[in-house]
Design a protein around this nucleic acid. Structure first.
Length: 570
DNA sequence: AAAGCCAACAACCGCCCCTTC
DNA sequence: AGAAGGGGCGGTTGTTGGCTT
């Protein structure tokens, strides 16, 4: 028998009291605190406890009268010294109870009501980073209490576990336990907080499963890689840009989605488990719903802040062939992460749920088999349709087709985004780009995108400082129209020198950006500052590397925020 | 209409850390 | 240095209301 369980012997009394005296959510009329006396035969009853001064301390739900007393007391004396509350206010509550009541319910500026989508995203991200550090997490969610977050998470956890779903979206950033990586989550969180993640890809490369180590037993998104040992994942850290979503999906296909726990059988210490290979450069939280179709055209967004990059550039090695299959088999789910825009579908895609749905269905029919699609997937089709409409009407994609054997970078995007057909998409991964062929290399082999001559005379990129040979950018990068465009003046383009402050783009570096991406610059708020953030992958020509043009500038374009001067997140 | 299930919420407990003496 | 107290945190349980069967 649980100690505080009000037992049946007083059941009738309790029922009466509950119905007549105790406030409920709908009945919040003030009731004198001393009117509430819950009876219990149990000495350790939840209804009351004995204080140090032998006073009977009340337990259970707080009444409006008690709340009023507490509020009044805190107004007068401020927070803290909670044990004094009981002594001085006449409240028959222990200090702890008072503190809790105040912190969770009475404190001003508390947000009430359901979590917003952004908050939910934030929680997921934060949990991936911190584990069950509710109080810490609460500092990132103004107006929310640790208890709320905890409750939300536990509920979510239960729900997902029951449904056999992963707790995390497939490529959510997992953070290392190393505190010095705090800035990584900062950038991640801040962007999420700003709403930029409203369906956008975003991830924190180079992060690890902290919460995998502390044995929380949560069903991690790591289940996306059920047959990938942790160690092998570590080995691939920052390595294979071609270790893309499709790989994950394939793994998912191979192992039932319910085998989430298998991941946890890996080595206990996983501090740097990279969910999404940096080569993807599509740091994405592929959130299962996309409330804002307007975001769908946005290209990849980077979480990087100049000077505070989420991953060290020097760890960005050349691609390495994967042994696993790369075949695109999930038309409706695919997210070729080598693609800079692929998230446009992914973010609106029910991720793992949809993967599950796919697993349960025929690979060739999954995307259009309603019965094979999870509830969230219903939005997927809409999203895809919308995406198709958007893309088809977009100038940026006007010249693209997915059927050519020599495809462009953006073509890949379009293909994967629109899920035109498995066959078509296989062009990228099948005969043309066989297994083991780096997706990055695929990109490199792709004709650069659109909008201009393929061999436009764009000046060569410089090697990125500190990148050794890993970020050498191909000289024949043919990002179009870069010379014609005055990037400094174009409202949607950034001056190359705007990347100063980036620790991997030196002064004067040319920043390859193509129209399609730059026009997708988004204003967001990061730690109280308004920013435009743009993120772009640039095929690096003959090298097997990608270079990323990351831009983050203040809202007043041209001014680069000094991140070091920005206020720290709580 | 009743029962069961579930989600959301509220509250408490035990443990731990920090500060003070 | 060590004990005591205050406070914070995470885990857990209980309650309530809505929905489904």
């Amino acid at each position: 028998m649980k100690q505080f369980r009000v037992v049946e012997t007083s059941c009738e009394t309790l029922r009466f009291l509950k119905m007549n005296l105790l406030p409920t959510k709908s009945e919040k009329e003030p009731i004198a605190a001393d009117n509430i006396v819950l009876h219990s035969n149990d000495e350790g009853s939840r209804a009351k406890s004995i204080g140090k001064d032998s006073q009977v301390l009340k337990k259970g739900p707080w009444t409006s009268a008690e709340d009023a007393i507490l509020v009044e007391y805190v107004k007068k004396h401020g927070e803290g010294n909670w044990n004094a509350v009981q002594k001085n206010s006449g409240l028959f509550r222990c200090g702890k109870s008072c503190r809790l009541r105040w912190a969770n319910h009475l404190k001003p500026n508390l947000k009430k009501g359901a979590f917003t989508m952004e908050e939910e995203e934030m929680i997921v991200k934060l949990h991936a980073k911190m584990g069950n550090k509710w109080a810490k997490m609460a500092t990132f969610l103004p107006g929310r209490t640790d208890n709320e977050i905890k409750n939300y998470w536990n509920t979510r956890k239960k729900r997902h576990q029951r449904a056999g779903l992963p707790l995390y979206p497939h490529n959510i950033c997992f953070q290392a336990s190393d505190e010095n990586q705090q800035t990584q989550i900062v950038s991640c969180v801040a962007q999420q907080h700003s709403g930029i993640l409203q369906g956008n890809s975003f991830d924190i490369p180079g992060t690890g499963f902290e919460n995998l180590n502390n044995g929380h037993g949560d069903l991690s998104y790591a289940s996306s890689f059920p047959d990938h040992s942790v160690s092998s994942m570590i080995c691939h850290e920052y390595e294979s840009p071609d270790y893309g979503y499709m790989d994950k999906v394939n793994h998912v296909k191979q192992v039932d989605a319910g085998c989430d726990a298998t991941f946890y059988s890996g080595p206990p210490s996983v501090s740097q488990f990279l969910i999404e290979p940096p080569g993807q450069l599509t740091f994405g939280l592929h959130y299962p719903y996309d409330p804002d179709p307007n975001f769908k055209d946005l290209a990849t967004f980077g979480g990087e802040i100049p000077g505070r990059h989420a991953f060290p550039i020097d760890k960005f090695s050349a691609s390495r062939p994967l042994s696993g299959a790369v075949k695109l088999e999930l038309p409706s789910l695919q997210c070729t992460e080598t693609d800079d825009s692929s998230w446009t579908v992914c973010h609106s895609t029910p991720t793992f749920e949809a993967v599950n749905a796919y697993v349960e269905s025929s690979p060739t029919t999954v995307s259009l088999q309603p019965e094979a699609i999870s509830p969230w997937s219903s939005g997927l089709l809409d999203a895809l349709l919308h995406e198709a409409q958007v893309l088809s009407s977009s100038k940026r994609y006007s010249s693209l087709k997915c059927s050519s054997s020599v495809i462009t970078h953006n073509e890949m995007v379009e293909c994967s985004d629109l899920n035109i057909s498995e066959t078509e998409c296989e062009d990228y991964n099948g005969p043309t780009y066989p297994l083991g062929h780096s997706a990055t290399s695929v990109l490199n082999e792709c004709t650069p995108p659109v909008c201009g001559s393929l061999s436009h005379g764009f000046p060569p990129f410089k090697d990125i400082p500190g990148s050794q040979n890993t970020f050498a950018v191909a000289e024949h990068l043919s990002t179009p129209n870069m010379e014609e465009k005055n990037m400094s003046s174009h409202p949607d383009f950034y001056r190359p020198d705007a990347l100063l402050g980036s620790d991997w783009l030196e002064e004067g570096s040319q920043v390859a950006k193509d129209n399609s991406v730059l026009s997708d610059a988004v204003t967001t708020t990061l730690m109280g500052h308004d920013f435009c953030i743009e993120h772009k992958i640039v095929p690096a020509g003959t090298s097997s590397d990608l270079v990323r043009g990351t831009k983050l500038e203040s809202h007043s374009r041209g001014k680069i925020p000094d991140v070091s001067q920005m206020p720290e997140l709580p």
